[in-house]
Amino acid sequence: MKQYIQLTNEEIKRSFKIYVIFVLVMAAIELVSIIVNVKLHERRVEDYLKSNTVTLYEALNEVGKISFVDTTTFYSYATMIGMALVLIYTIQIWYRDWIGETKYIYRLLMLPGKRISIFFSKWTTLLLIIMSFLGIQWCLIQIGNLLFNWSVRVDYLDKDSHRTLGSTLGEIFSLNLTNLFVILAVSMFIVSFIFLLVLIERSYRKWTGLLRMGVEIFIMIIFTVAGLYFLEQTKLLLNSEKMLVLTGLFVLYFAYVILRSLHLLKWKITV
């Protein structure tokens, strides 16, 4: 346990500066984009008033009022960029240990104790990054909403709008704990599966490794498609029972991915 904590702390320190820079840039862009969108809307209304002899009420009916949802485009972009960077980092967190003159991976593999600590230190780091990213985005949405209400003119505000954040963004940043748990579970499955592919590639010769990676991806696709098709076609189970079966299959395959990764790290990865 001590080794796991030490390795996790080391991984977090190696990632901290880049992560903080990304979060600060993301926060600045998202919050500034709200002000910019509000000002652009005001400019459109003013331009319409100048080019047409109409009242403010008529101009707003033509141009439209603005709601907070109209200013959250960059939140969606930032979330997608964040997800993409997490996927890249999931690969890089392993390969950086093989890159460079020091070959940091050799130091890790020669540490006394079980190699399971190496795997779960990286796994935990990704979990913390994903959780903190979602939490920070949620906080930025709340701050952005306050900033929007402060910067927009009362007459320009669409008070009757019942729109929520985009369907995907809304699901991610809702206060529904079930949604949050599902998102984290799926995210960590993807992280674990990428870990497995990296360890397969590192465990075998080039073409053999690539072939085995292809087989693993094929198995995952077949497993997913077959499971979903069976649950969709069968009429023997209730919807709640189908969800229970689907969850069970997911947990089983998740466990297989982690156990296979640990087996490769213990027996196939050599110094």
Rank of each mutant, 00 (worst) to 15 (best):
E46P: 01
I143M: 09
I118G: 00
A78P: 00
F133H: 04
Y75F: 15
I143R: 02
M131R: 03
Y48C: 10
F133W: 12
G113E: 10
D158T: 08
T102N: 10
K65A: 05
D70A: 08
L108N: 02
Y104S: 09
V54L: 05
V154E: 14
V69N: 09
V63Q: 08
S151Q: 10
E46Q: 13
F119V: 01
I143E: 02
W94K: 01
Y156N: 12
S117V: 11
T55S: 15
W94H: 07
L134C: 11
E62G: 00
V54E: 05
I93Y: 01
D97S: 04
L134S: 13
F119Q: 00
L128V: 12
I118C: 02
M131Q: 09
K65C: 06
L60C: 10
T53C: 06
I130K: 01
P112M: 08
K50W: 04
G64V: 10
Y57K: 12
L56G: 09
I81E: 02
Q137I: 02
D47G: 12
A84G: 15
I81P: 01
F148V: 06
A59P: 11
D70Y: 12
L147Y: 15
S67K: 06
M110C: 11
D158V: 09
T73Q: 06
F120D: 01
D155C: 03
I99Y: 02
K122W: 04
L111P: 00
I136Y: 02
L111Y: 04
R153H: 12
Y57T: 14
Y89F: 14
Q142Y: 14
D70E: 13
Y106S: 06
L134M: 15
Y106E: 14
K122S: 07
Q142T: 12
Y77P: 00
N145H: 13
A84E: 04
W138T: 09
G82N: 14
T72Q: 04
K50R: 14
W138N: 12
S132E: 06
N52R: 08
E46L: 15
T71W: 13
L85A: 09
G144D: 07
I66V: 11
L146N: 10
L85V: 15
T79N: 08
Y48K: 06
I88N: 03
S51W: 07
P112A: 05
I143L: 14
T55Q: 15
G113W: 08
G144I: 04
F74N: 12
I129Y: 12
R153M: 08
P112D: 11
T90A: 14
L126T: 02
T125D: 10
R115F: 06
N61F: 13
K103L: 11
I136C: 04
F120M: 08
W123G: 00
S132D: 03
S117T: 13
T102S: 10
F74K: 02
R107T: 10
N52W: 08
I93G: 03
L157Y: 15
I105S: 02
L140Q: 02
L140K: 01
R107P: 00
I93R: 01
L127E: 03
